[in-house]
Amino acid sequence: MTAQGDPYTYEKPLWRVILVGFLKWTTIAVGSFLILSLLAVFTIGWTGPAPTFNMAGTAMRGVEVRSTWVDLKDISPHLVRAVIASEDQNFCAHEGFDLKEIQKAMQAAENGGDLRGASTISQQTAKNVFLWNGGGWARKGAEAYFTMLAEWMWSKPRIMEIYLNVAEWGDGIYGVEQAAQERFGVAAKDLTPRQAAALAAVLPSPNRWKIDGNYATGRRNNKIQALMGMVRRDGLDKCVVGP
């Protein structure tokens, strides 16, 4: 007791005050991020995405961004088969991540080959809508998180629809409708198998590989056309275009 009869006061150590404050604000920040990200994924599932980081980056480089949204029903099934054939043949079977392709990529790297991509269409959609191009573990972690949310909240047809509308086809062209009109002078619903394969062939690097471009792109185009028949025959597109 003090001379006035008051109990002794206890002052918390400074390190404890700092730690408690840090944990408190970290919890608030993480909780806010989780709530906002859930709301964002849910909302986009119904309304469609706003302009993406990639579009903003293109505009900042002084390139005009051209984009026209089109519903999945107005996109040729040839293009759906082409992108499944070229980008993600297990799209209808996996839940966001293709573990077999990831394992193959890791084995190839261990054997001295280049580290090739193993991203699914779901992962690419999450990256294109919510994130930005580039590497780093933080971005990869965020990509995995948004991929899981997209697979949980969106249907496979919705994932494909958003993917085809936000993918870049080079020179500031975003979305298949804009690409079909500028490259071939047709609507997305009227793309032929060859035109669809030509569009899918440049997706890995649209600003380096041209649709009407080089020998390597032409060979990839021919390979995709051959695989499109397999996709249809084996029903690898059934979750999007039906049986």
Rank of each mutant, 00 (worst) to 15 (best):
L99P: 01
M55E: 09
S205N: 13
M153R: 13
M1T: 03
E95S: 15
V65K: 07
A59F: 12
K104C: 02
M1W: 05
V20T: 05
T52E: 01
P243M: 10
A188N: 04
L19G: 11
E87C: 08
V231F: 03
W137S: 05
N90G: 01
N111E: 11
G135H: 06
G185V: 10
I35Q: 12
T26C: 11
N207V: 11
R194S: 09
I75L: 01
G48L: 05
I35C: 11
N54S: 13
I224A: 15
A50S: 00
Q178N: 11
D237P: 00
Q103A: 15
M160V: 05
A180I: 02
D212V: 12
G218R: 04
Q181D: 08
L39M: 05
S32G: 10
S119A: 12
D88F: 10
P49L: 01
T217L: 11
K73L: 04
F91R: 09
S205T: 14
G113T: 09
I18R: 14
N221W: 14
G57H: 12
G45H: 00
A109F: 06
V70M: 07
Q195I: 05
Q225M: 15
R66I: 15
M148I: 15
S155G: 05
D71Y: 01
A144L: 05
F184H: 02
R158T: 04
L19F: 15
V186D: 13
R194F: 06
F97L: 10
A105N: 05
Q103R: 14
D190K: 01
Q181T: 05
D98M: 12
G136Q: 07
E151Q: 15
F91Q: 08
K73Q: 06
K24I: 09
E161S: 13
P243D: 07
P157C: 10
V65I: 00
